[in-house]
Amino acid sequence: MTYGFQLAHDPNPPRSFTAPRTFALLAALSSPALAIDWTLCPGINDPVAEGATEPRYEGFFSPYTHHWSHDPEHKPVFAFSLSRLLPNDRTCGISLFRNSFGQPSAYAFVGKAWPGLLPSQPKVYVSVTAGILYGYVGQYKDKVPMNVGGFSPAIIPAVGYQLSPRSALEVQILGTAAFMVGAKWRF
C-alpha cells in the first residue's frame, strides 16, 4: 500500500526531503483554502463536564483495502484508529495497521470533516487527515514518497455516510495505491 503526498506535476516522487518540495508541502498544508487548524489535540486533558453526553472519541476499523494494481507481494491490510473529537469537526489521532507488505505501521494525524456538503444527501460527509506515517522500511522504503528513515508525510481524503449520530461507513483514498473501506463509532 502506498500512502503519502506527491505533487501532481511530479511523476517521480522524491526519495528524500529537499527544500523546494518541503516548502511546497508546507505551503499546501497551511493554505487558507484548507481552513484547518493544525494545532495538535488542543484540550485533550480538558475534564468532561458533569452530565455530558456528547461523544469525545471516534474509533475506526478497516478489514478491507483494495489496491488499484496487483502486486504479488501485497498482503491483507487491517487498520484500527482512535481519534479525539475536537470542536468544529476537527480530529486528531493515531492509526495502527499492518501495511500492504506485512509490516507493522502507524499514522499520527490531525483532520477536519465537512458534514452535509450535499443538501440532497445530508448524511454524506467528506474529510481529510494529514500527518506522519511510519512503517515502510527495509526493502519497502521506496513504496511511499519522501520516506526518511521509515517516516513520511501523508494526506488521506475520505468520503463517508453517517448511519446514525454515532456510526458511519467510510472510504479512505490512499493516494495512487488503494482505497480502504471501514466503519466508525463515536463514544
Rank of each mutant, 00 (worst) to 15 (best):
L7H: 12
T18F: 08
T53G: 10
V48F: 01
K143C: 04
A33C: 00
H67Y: 11
S31W: 08
L34D: 04
A33K: 11
I94G: 14
T53Y: 01
V110L: 10
H70P: 03
G4V: 05
A24S: 14
A108C: 04
F23P: 00
Q162M: 08
G116E: 10
I36V: 14
V171H: 01
A19T: 15
C92Y: 01
A35L: 05
Y134H: 15
V124G: 04
H74R: 12
A154V: 02
V171S: 08
T2S: 14
L40G: 01
T18K: 11
F80A: 15
V48N: 01
P157H: 05
F179G: 01
D71A: 06
P104K: 07
A154C: 05
Y140N: 14
G131D: 07
F179T: 02
G59T: 13
R186I: 00
L163W: 12
A183H: 06
G135H: 09
L85E: 03
G43Q: 07
T129N: 11
F109T: 01
S69A: 14
A52M: 06
V171F: 06
A158P: 00
Y140L: 07
S152H: 08
F187H: 03
E58L: 04
S127K: 11
T18V: 11
V126A: 12
K184H: 07
W114G: 02
P13T: 11
S83M: 05
P145T: 07
V124H: 05
P76R: 09
G150I: 10
P76F: 06
W68E: 06
T129H: 09
K123E: 11
P14K: 11
D142H: 13
H9T: 12
G59S: 14
H9M: 07
S62R: 05
A158N: 00
C41F: 12
A108V: 15
M1K: 12
A154I: 01
P87A: 02
F109Y: 14
G111T: 06
F179C: 05
Y134W: 14
E54C: 01
A177W: 02
V148W: 10
K123F: 00
P76G: 07
S83F: 01
S100P: 09
K75H: 13
F80D: 03
Q6Y: 05
G149R: 07
S105G: 09
P153A: 04
Y64Q: 09
G116I: 02
N99D: 13
Q139L: 12
L85A: 03
K112W: 01
S83L: 09
W114I: 03
S95D: 10
D10A: 13
W38V: 07
K123W: 01
L82M: 13
A8P: 00
A28G: 10
S83T: 10
C92I: 08
T91L: 10
P14H: 11
E73H: 13
F101Q: 03
Q172G: 09
G59M: 14
W38F: 07
S152Y: 04
A158Q: 08
I132A: 15
V144F: 03
A177V: 03
V128T: 13
P153S: 03
T39P: 01
S83D: 15
P145Q: 08
H70E: 11
W38T: 13
V128N: 07
K123R: 15
M146Y: 15
Y57W: 15
F151A: 11
P20A: 06
L26Q: 11
G175S: 06
F61G: 10
Y136F: 15
A154T: 08
R15G: 13
F101S: 03
